[in-house]
Amino acid sequence: MSLAPVSPLPVGAPDTNRIALRDVRKTFQLKPGQSVTLDGRLSDRIPVLSGVDLDIRQGEFVTIVGPSGSGKSVLLDIIAGLTQATNGFAAIDGHKVSRPHRETAYVFQQYALFPWRTALQNIEYPLEVRGVGRAARRERAQHFLNLFGLKGFEDRYPSQLSGGMQQRVAIARALATDPQVLLMDEPFAALDAQTRDILQSELLRIWEQIRTTVVFVTHSIDEAIFLADRIVVMTARPAQVKETIAVDLPRPRDIEIRNSAAFNAYRARVWDALREEVSKAQRDWALASAYNA
C-alpha cells in the first residue's frame, strides 16, 4: 500500500475546513452462511453508517460519542483510508480519501505497538517508511519520546512498559510525522482512571502546542467534554450524526474543570442526546443475539 497521490475534488467547503464527510454510508456484506436479523427480517448485510455528514475545521478537537456498535470505528477507518465507504466520501483538505493519507495518523485502543521494536524504534517507524534518514528520524523520535516524559525508556520493548507508557509511545509515534489529522479510537479506554486523567491532560498540553485536527472517539462523556471543541453524538446503528454540541469551556483546561457547573450542564446535555440512542442500540443487540454464524 503506497500513500495516496490524492485527486483534487471540489468539496465546496471553506478553506479552513480540514475534514469533510459527505453522506458517508457503509454496509457490510457478511460472509457466506452468516446472517443477522434486522427489523424482524433475516439479512446477510449490515448497514452500519447511513449518511454521515460532518465538517471538521482545521485545528479543531472533535470528540465522537455514540452507542457501542454504532459504527464509530468504521467511520474513523473511512477517514483514515483503511476502509472504503459504500456511498459518499470522506475528504481531507478537499481531496477524497481513498488510501491512507500521508497527513493522517491513527491511534488505537490496543496501542498497536510493534512488540519487536523498542519504544524509540516504534516512534521511528512511520519516519522510516517515509524514507527519513537514520540520524534525522532518531533525533525526531527522541524528541517526541521526551515530550511524553519517556526519557530513559528508549530501549524498552512494549512488553516491558505499562499500559499508560505504551499508549504514550503510540501517541508519540502518531505525532512524529506532524500529521494534519489525528484519529484516535478510544485511546484511553484500556487504562485505569488515574492514568487516563493524566493522559487526557498530557494530550491537551501537547495539542495546545501543535493544534492539529483531532477526531477522538470515546465512551466516556466526561472525556468527550473535557477534550473537545465540539462533541458529535451518533445515533444507534445504522448511524448518522444525531447532534453536535459546541463546548465553550476556556482553554487551557485543568482537570478540576470537571467539577464546574458549566461542565455539569454539558454532561446533562450529552447524556440527553445519547440516552435514547443507547436504549435503541440495546434493543438492537437483543435482536443481534439471533446472529446466526
Binding site: 500500500m1 500513500l3 491512507p100 495518523a105 491513527y106 488505537f108 510493534f114 512511520p126
Partner: peptide, 17 residues
C-alpha cells in the same frame, strides 16, 4: 491484524509490510 492495520495507516508499502 491490528499490527497490519496500524502499519497500513502509517503508509507502509507492500514491501515494507
Amino acid at each position: 491484524p491490528l499490527h497490519i492495520k496500524a502499519a497500513r495507516s502509517m503508509g507502509t508499502s507492500d514491501w515494507d509490510l
